[in-house]
């Protein structure tokens, strides 16, 4: 346990020294702010974009607060995932490549504490980033568009975060046995796109899919309560996450 804390502290020190603690939340807050602001100013933006004949009338209804927040989740699912996967793709792969893993494991350190310390710090940082960003998005939505209960934002963000948790675990899992960080990112992104696509295309067959959690969170924002599958995807996601993490933490590679 003591070595776990030492490793955990080292991860944070590293993330501070390479500014990940700053730029990841910053990027997320940006994505979070973008949605309410563009929704609100969309008519103005279109008007100023020119290219429209004189006298053209633009009528775009300003979306409801809940819809804006649900769209924010869409932003995270595109840009946010990319940022997180790129930020954490090398979390183990790069240390294995440089030989640092060996230097650490030659000390009396358990391989599982080495992996879980990394996983925990990645999860905590992305949780911080997403909740901060969600709060910012909520604040601007309330300011520009209309009131929305904060508790629902917290609930929705928590449900959505379980999907992100799954993706981070997937990144850590690939990172634990691939040597190239690029491959880690490629595999993780491909798999996440595949899950997303299949879930949208084959809704009926994919009720267990972790991606359903995004839909659950979105309906919580738009309709005020969760519609569609929730418990089933929650259970599969938790099981998959635990499975991937334990595979990553027990699988000790020779190289």
């Amino acid at each position: 346990m003591k070595t776990w804390l030492v490793l955990f502290r080292k991860e944070w020190l590293e993330m501070i020294r390479n500014y990940k603690v700053i730029w990841i939340p910053l990027a997320f807050v940006l994505f979070g702010l973008l949605q309410p602001i563009t929704s609100y100013y969309m008519p103005e933006i279109l008007k100023n974009a020119g290219n429209l004949p004189n006298g053209a009338v633009i009528k775009i209804p300003i979306p409801l607060s809940g819809e804006v927040l649900a769209q924010t989740l869409g932003q995270y699912n595109q840009m946010g995932i990319l940022v997180l996967v790129l930020a954490f793709m090398g979390i183990i792969a790069s240390e294995r490549k440089s030989g640092m893993t060996k230097a650490i494991l030659v000390k009396p350190v358990g391989y599982s504490s080495y992996i879980t310390a990394k996983w925990t710090s990645a999860v905590l940082l992305s949780a911080g980033a997403i909740f901060l960003s969600m709060a910012a998005s909520w604040y601007y939505t309330v300011l520009l568009i209309g009131d929305f209960p904060f508790m629902n934002v917290v609930k929705g963000a928590s449900i959505f975060f379980i999907w992100i948790l799954f993706l981070i675990t997937l990144t850590v899992f690939f990172s634990s046995f691939l040597k190239s960080s690029g491959l880690v990112a490629a595999f993780t992104l491909l798999l996440s796109i595949l899950v997303t696509l299949l879930t949208s295309l084959l809704g009926k067959w994919m009720e267990w899919s972790p991606y359903q959690l995004t839909n659950a969170a979105a309906t919580l924002f738009t309709a005020g309560r969760i519609e569609g599958p929730f418990l089933l995807p929650l259970i599969t996601t938790v099981i998959l996450t635990v499975l991937l993490l334990s595979l990553a933490a027990t699988r000790k590679s020779n190289s």
Binding site: T3, M100, P108, V109
Partner: peptide, 20 residues
């Protein structure tokens, strides 16, 4: 190999703590 972002002292303390 070392973490290039650590200084020598920090690295030794880190390794020492890992050793218990």
């Amino acid at each position: 190999v070392f973490f290039p972002w650590m200084n020598g002292m920090e690295y030794l303390v880190f390794m020492g703590e890992l050793s218990g």
